[in-house]
Design a protein around this nucleic acid. Structure first.
Lengths: 106, 106
DNA sequence: ACAATAGGCAAGCGACAGCTTGCCTATCAA
DNA sequence: TTGATAGGCAAGCTGTCGCTTGCCTATTGT
C-alpha cells in the first residue's frame, strides 16, 4: 500500500486526478493525450504510466482491464480521510498560551 | 507560497501537525522534545526547524513571536481545499465506459 | 556582565523520486 | 498473418529533499 500523501505530492499526478475528475475511465494513451493538449504536460507515456502506478498503489485510482484497454477510474474516498486526521473541535484543542512546557530538557 | 501537498508529503511533518493538534502553540524545543518522546522521532532540532519552515510556507502553521519564544499554531483551513478539488457530484462526473477516445493520435 | 537558553543561517552530503531510453508482450484490425 | 496499437518491464541518469554540521544572533536569568 503506497503512501497517499506522497502520491498527491507530485503536480503531474494531481493533474491526472483533475483529468479523471473531468472524464473518468480513461486509458493510458487517452490520459497522455489529454494531459498534453489540455494541461501542457510533455512527459512520456512511461512517465505517466509510472504516475498511474503510484496513484493506484495509494488507492486513488482503480483499474479495469478490457481486452487491450485498461481503464482508470478515480476513487476519492481516501481523500476524505486527510482533513479528518487534523480536524478536531476547537474547544477540544488545547493551546499552550503563556509559558512553554519546561518539563523536557536535554 | 510553498506547496501544500508537498508539505504534507513528509511523514515527520505530518506528525508535527499531529502533535500541534494535540497541543497547539508549542515552541521549537517543545516540539522536538515531544516528537522524540511520544513519536520516536530522533531528528535534530535544525531538521525540525526546517520542517516547520516548510509547514509555515504552505500555510499550515502560523507563528507568533514572544520574546525569545516562537509559538507555532496549526491552521487546518488549507486542508479543507484538498478534498474539494476532486470532489464532484457523481452525476456530474462523466465516465467513458465503452470505447476509448480515439481523437488524439500521434 | 556573562552564561544559558531559544532560535537562525548556510554549506555539504546521501538517498530517492521522477524521467528517459530501449526493448518487450498482448490484443486487435486488415 | 502481419502490422499497428495498448501497455509493461527494467536499467540508468539527474535534480531535489531531508538531514547533518558548524557557527551565528537574540533574549533571559543570576
Amino acid at each position: 500500500m503506497g503512501d497517499l500523501y506522497q502520491a498527491l505530492a507530485d503536480p503531474t499526478r494531481r493533474q491526472i486526478l483533475d483529468e479523471l475528475t473531468e472524464r473518468d475511465g480513461q486509458t493510458l494513451f487517452e490520459i497522455c493525450g489529454r494531459l498534453a493538449t489540455r494541461h501542457q504536460i510533455t512527459s512520456s507515456r512511461q512517465a505517466i504510466s509510472q504516475h498511474l502506478d503510484v496513484l493506484e498503489a495509494a488507492g486513488l485510482i482503480v483499474t479495469r482491464r478490457q481486452g487491450r484497454y485498461k481503464f482508470h477510474h478515480i476513487d476519492i474516498r481516501p481523500l476524505q480521510t486527510i482533513a479528518e486526521r487534523w480536524l478536531r473541535p476547537e474547544s477540544d484543542r488545547r493551546c499552550h498560551e503563556d509559558q512553554p512546557d519546561q518539563r523536557i530538557r536535554r
